[in-house]
Amino acid sequence: MSNVISPKQVAASLSEHWSPRVVAEVDDSYIKVAKINGSLAWHSHDNEDELFLVLKGHLRIEMEQGSVELSEGEMYVVPKGVRHNPVAEQECHVMLIERKSTLHTGDVVTEKTRSLAEQLRPV
């Protein structure tokens, strides 16, 4: 039997911003949580959709065609190939659902980019 977890509690316990942690697996996808603040980076995932669910706070996802604003409990799927930049004006906690092949910052590498090994570290 699987362990019961609270994504909200795990996200709240994280000490680093922009450092997603894998909390579960579903078939070929990872369920991740992260604590974010500020801007990540403009990037895209050519072959993967990316689901953002806000656990706490407010998130803006900037895209070239416009932005979406998400409040606690709301979610949005960034379609594969769409350039986007997540932005949180104040600390925000999110849950992400991504294919296991999804690179953290997609087609770009910055100082905020985290490897899969870093994301798989125990919480």
Results as ranks from 00 to 15, higher is better:
3 N>L: 07
4 V>A: 04
4 V>S: 12
5 I>M: 13
5 I>E: 03
5 I>G: 04
8 K>L: 04
9 Q>E: 01
12 A>V: 00
13 S>N: 02
16 E>L: 01
19 S>I: 14
20 P>N: 10
20 P>L: 10
24 A>K: 14
28 D>A: 04
29 S>V: 05
29 S>P: 00
30 Y>N: 05
31 I>N: 10
33 V>C: 03
34 A>C: 09
37 N>K: 14
39 S>H: 10
40 L>M: 15
42 W>K: 13
42 W>A: 08
43 H>A: 11
43 H>Q: 04
45 H>T: 02
45 H>S: 06
46 D>V: 05
46 D>R: 08
47 N>E: 09
47 N>Y: 12
47 N>W: 03
48 E>N: 10
49 D>A: 07
52 F>A: 02
53 L>P: 06
54 V>A: 03
56 K>W: 15
57 G>C: 13
62 E>Y: 05
62 E>P: 15
73 G>S: 06
75 M>R: 07
76 Y>G: 06
76 Y>Q: 15
78 V>K: 13
81 G>W: 04
82 V>F: 15
84 H>W: 11
85 N>V: 02
85 N>H: 07
86 P>G: 10
89 E>G: 13
90 Q>P: 05
91 E>N: 04
93 H>P: 02
94 V>S: 12
96 L>Q: 03
99 R>P: 03
100 K>W: 10
100 K>V: 02
102 T>W: 12
104 H>C: 08
105 T>M: 07
105 T>E: 07
106 G>A: 12
112 K>V: 09
114 R>W: 10
118 E>T: 04
119 Q>K: 06
